Amino acid sequence: MMTRAISSILALALSLTAAHAVEYEHNGSLVDVTVTEDRVRITYLRPRDGLRRIGVRKGTLLFEGKVEPLDDGGPYVEGMARLFKAGCQPAPYYVHGAFRLGKAFQLNGAAPVFAKTGCRNVDNTYEGSNANMKFERVASRDPGQKRVTQNKKRPGSLCVANISAGGTLNVRSGPGANYGRVGTLEAQDCNVAGLRQCINGWCAVMQLSDGTIGWVSQDYIRSAQ
């Protein structure tokens, strides 16, 4: 019943933003963010000079993904972004983040690192503007569109567990202890939403107090119920 209720909330939220497009500024470029049902596409409207010099044009795809529900019913988006280099095919990489059309948002992931020469991917990084893609709203094409608000003050679906009083749980940029730390959660903190994705004992979560999104070990979280 709970899963059905969450799905109903998400369906309502998506119906209010179906086929709407909003212009955003991203890293010096103007982009178009379009939501159609549960799909999200981000394309360039006016690429910055550096991107134009390497062939990025109006309409070039930057990101394509899907809106999914948080455990508290709010939407987030996940999918594949693309990194560009002159003379190379766009390099795809997975990103995700809390999302609401018309509001500023950020998508995070492990961005590819190209070799200094050629098109070989030699590394990945969780730092910089490609790994932490920020989108600031510029203008909406549909000023009359309805807004769906989210109550961020209500408790999340998860609590920090098995951490001594006064201790903290590291929030990582990826599903493993080898990934960099993006934040911490205090012992017994229950203001945490699960993002319904776990890999090899690590789960994606969002700290509702500040919107931090990352991965924590499944051994240190429990249901808030």
Results as ranks from 00 to 15, higher is better:
Glu37Tyr: 10
Ser15His: 12
Ser129Gln: 10
Val148Ala: 13
Glu78Phe: 03
His26Ala: 09
Gly183Met: 00
Gln89Asn: 08
Pro69Val: 00
Met133Tyr: 04
Leu158Glu: 01
Asp123Trp: 05
Asp210Trp: 05
Ala11Leu: 10
Val40Lys: 03
His26Asn: 12
Cys190Arg: 01
Thr125Glu: 03
Arg181Trp: 15
Ala139Trp: 14
Gly128Trp: 05
Asn130Glu: 14
Asn200Lys: 09
Gln225Trp: 14
Gly144Cys: 08
Ser8Met: 04
Ala11Pro: 13
Arg53Lys: 15
Lys66Tyr: 14
Gln218Pro: 05
Asn191His: 12
Arg120Thr: 09
Cys119Leu: 01
Gly167Ser: 05
Arg154Cys: 03
Glu136Trp: 02
Leu107Phe: 06
Ala165Ile: 09
Gly180Asn: 06
Gln218Ala: 13
Ser15Ala: 08
Val22Ile: 10
Asp71Gln: 01
Tyr76His: 07
Cys119Ile: 06
Gln106Ala: 11
Val95Ser: 15
Val22Ala: 06
Arg137Met: 10
Asp210Leu: 12
Asp32Cys: 11
Ile221Tyr: 02
Ser217Asn: 03
Val148Arg: 07
Tyr220Trp: 15
Asn162Pro: 05
Gly174Phe: 09
Ala111Gly: 00
Ile42Lys: 03
Ala224Leu: 13
Leu12Ser: 05
Ala187Tyr: 00
Thr36Arg: 06
Ala13Trp: 07
Trp202Thr: 10
Met206Lys: 04
Thr168Cys: 06
Val95Gly: 11
Asn108Ile: 15
Val192Leu: 04
Leu45Phe: 11
Pro69Ile: 09
Ile9Met: 15
Asn191Ser: 07
Leu61His: 04
Glu136Arg: 11
Ser223Asp: 10
Gly87Thr: 00
Leu12Lys: 12
Gly166His: 02
Tyr94Lys: 11
Ser223Tyr: 12
Asp142Cys: 07
Leu61Met: 08
Pro47Lys: 02
Thr184Ile: 10
Cys198Gln: 07
Tyr76Ile: 02
Thr117Asn: 11
Ile6Trp: 13
Thr17Arg: 06
Lys153His: 06
Ile42Asp: 03
Thr149His: 14
Gly102Ile: 02
Val22Asp: 07
Met133Phe: 01
Ala5Asn: 13
Met206Glu: 04
Val56Tyr: 06
Trp202Gln: 12
Lys146Cys: 01
